[in-house]
């Protein structure tokens, strides 16, 4: 097992295992995951429910710690850090995007974008400037004063993306970002991800069960039963499903 640094990789997972223990029952969920995400890559983790996808997402997002194995984030082993350090890294290095947007209904769009910067103790003037820039980048510069409840689902997800980018993270971790959107909006959001990836070189890690998103990714990592499976899905063999 190698642990030495490897320049271009943002994320490196080495033999990640996670076993849930309930009483005498040991449920192995992740059974040794090895994967890397390079800078500027658009990676999709695809797996059915029960494949360990959510657990892997939690570990990638540093909300959970692996039972065994090593997780390098920009060449720093982050798997076993303390609560406070984990929160700080989550704040600076990871941009979360959720299936149900998770915007704060009582805050304005601008304030929503500013939340991660608030926790990074960035001064108000800079926060507001950056919030405006980000809102413009996702095409919603004119909506800063609105409440999330006044926006459509697609617009909400754009705001969530802006929020995820606000601390210029190492990578964006998106959990089924199109799960709550219709096909058209979902394509628009995926297009936005592509734009960010291509034009600004944002590294994106997307976790999904939806094989239809497969063609969007630079690299597909297939999860089956807690392991990485190199056999291509049926649709990959047959061509893009529609």
């Amino acid at each position: 097992m190698t642990t030495e640094a490897h320049g271009g990789d943002i994320v490196r997972l080495i033999d990640i295992r996670k076993t849930y223990i309930t009483g005498d029952l040991r449920v192995p969920v992740l059974k040794g995951i090895n994967a890397t995400v390079s800078r500027g890559e658009f990676v999709g983790f695809i797996g059915t429910s029960g494949s360990g996808k959510s657990t892997l997402l939690n570990i990638l997002g540093m909300l959970d710690v692996p039972t065994a194995g090593e997780y390098f984030l920009e060449d720093v082993e982050v798997g076993q850090l303390s609560d406070v350090e984990q929160a700080t890294i989550r704040n600076r290095k990871i941009g979360f995007i959720f299936q149900s947007f998770n915007l704060f209904a009582y805050l304005s769009v601008e304030q929503n974008i500013e939340v991660p910067m608030l926790y990074a103790r960035i001064p108000g003037r800079i926060r507001r400037k950056r919030a405006l820039e980000l809102a413009r980048r996702v095409g919603l510069g004119h909506r800063l004063g609105h409440r999330p409840t006044q926006l459509s689902g697609g617009e909400c997800q754009r705001i969530a993306i802006a929020r995820a980018l606000s601390n210029q993270p190492a990578f964006i971790l998106a959990d089924e970002p199109t799960g709550n959107l219709d096909e058209k909006t979902s394509n628009e959001i995926m297009e936005l991800f592509h734009e960010l990836n291509r034009e600004q070189g944002v590294t994106i890690v997307m976790v999904t069960h939806n094989p239809a998103l497969g063609p969007h990714y630079d690299k597909i990592i297939r999860l089956r039963d807690g392991r990485i499976d190199d056999t291509p899905f049926e649709w990959e063999v047959r061509g893009t499903p529609k």
């Binding site: 997002g61 909300l63 609560d83 406070v84 929160a87 700080t88 989550r90 704040n91 600076r92 979360f96 959720f98 998770n102 704060f104 939340v115 991660p116 926790y119 990074a120 929020r163 601390n167």
Partner: peptide, 16 residues
């Protein structure tokens, strides 16, 4: 609690 989870994911410390 969902808001709390989101805030934690966005980098809030427990103390925050």
């Amino acid at each position: 609690r969902k808001e709390i989870g989101t805030r934690r994911a966005l980098g809030a410390q427990k103390s925050d």
